[in-house]
Design a binder for these strands. Structure first.
Lengths: 202, 202
DNA sequence: CACATACGATACGGATCCGTTCCGTATCGT
DNA sequence: ACGATACGGAACGGATCCGTATCGTATGTG
């Protein structure tokens, strides 16, 4: 973003440069500690430094405080978007629903529940959360629109409500273990099929 | 539970009895602080005591620590079950969905998101959470069964999946503000109608 | 080489909270 | 009245963490 190496703008580096290894070690330590069950505010700079094998000063040289570090660490966790195949609308929906709360980084699943209170408290976290899920919502919206244009889905449905319908059950099960009798693995298919079919007789 | 006054078991009270006002002031202070945005572990016994106008010793005389106090306070918050009217299955479902995350005590809505991490971390909190929602799930299950017996709902649906379908969207919207474009007030009706109707063409 | 900066480590003063203990006072039963 | 217990308040030692400063050392540029 900010450091475009435009023109002959010399990077201007008197003295020893920052260690990239330290950078990554700090971020990794933060995510590790969160994934191991530490709450956001139980997470201390001292613990992160110790875990990363780094002096506290090395952290404060890079970030203003715990919040800034945390936001950076979470951004690093964003992951890649799922890729709908584009053949079957139903299968694409199952794929997207199954990807809810999943990530290339397995720590994400453990960390997500810890962030729920923060999303409610901090506008920064709320924005970050919305930035992460907005493209995934858009992906699902496009699949639904495709289904409509193919005549597979009724054109009069409310897209936003439908997305909530597809997303909600999976999310509460992954984040809250809402109903111990449900199986996370089969749930995406069940949800999609139920939403498509409806439950009313005739 | 434990203090059944069976037999002529005199309550045996030498000395000044515990103050019921202190009891309630402590619980109220705990819930107030949580509702005002304090996280579970940012919540300190000292803050609770100060807020309640009570000495710390008065708290430690009653509870072993923060966890025990917290579980007691949350139990107090349980609230009353919604009452389906029993006429229209559709309207009863709308009522139950609308009651998700609602409570006679308005503080409950603010407190709920704070508990998500705890439910994942502590088996006690998980059990408490399940104990609170189990009767509400049962209520919804009975309404769905009634709809099936009335021929209004298809008999081949998966009840647990259907309940997740009805509950999930409302819960993520109340707890996470999942989609700012959705309106919490109209959502229950929209969700119920969408689940009943399905979105597939023909 | 000299200089500038970053490094890990350690120590610091200040703050907060823990759980306990002790006040002087208040409120019970006998 | 008397003993027993609870009360609010204050103080305690210990623990943890904050954010800063200061070591001696390492690693870059000119």
């Amino acid at each position: 973003m900010s450091d475009m190496t435009s023109t002959a703008d010399a990077p201007r580096s008197p003295g020893r440069p920052r260690s990239i290894r330290a950078d990554e070690a700090i971020i990794e330590a933060t995510l590790d500690l969160l994934a191991e069950g530490s709450t956001i505010e139980a997470l201390s700079i001292e613990a992160i430094a110790a875990r990363a094998g780094v002096g506290k000063a090395t952290i404060y040289r890079r970030w203003a405080g715990k919040d800034a570090l945390l936001l950076d660490a979470l951004r690093r966790l964003k992951g890649v978007l799922p890729q709908p195949e584009g053949h079957s609308v139903r299968d694409d929906l199952v794929l997207l629903v199954g990807a809810i709360g999943q990530n290339v980084d397995p720590r994400a699943a453990k960390i997500m529940p810890c962030l729920v209170p923060e999303v409610n408290r901090s506008p920064d976290h709320f924005r970050l959360y919305q930035n992460i899920i907005a493209p995934r919502r858009q992906l699902m919206r496009e699949v639904l629109r495709r289904g409509i244009s193919e005549g597979f889905i009724r054109p009069d449905i409310d897209l936003e409500v439908t997305m909530a319908l597809l997303t909600g059950p999976m999310l509460i099960q992954r984040v809250l273990q809402w109903n111990p009798e449900l199986d996370e693995r089969t749930l995406p298919g069940q949800v999609v099929d139920a939403v498509l079919a409806g439950i009313q007789a005739h």
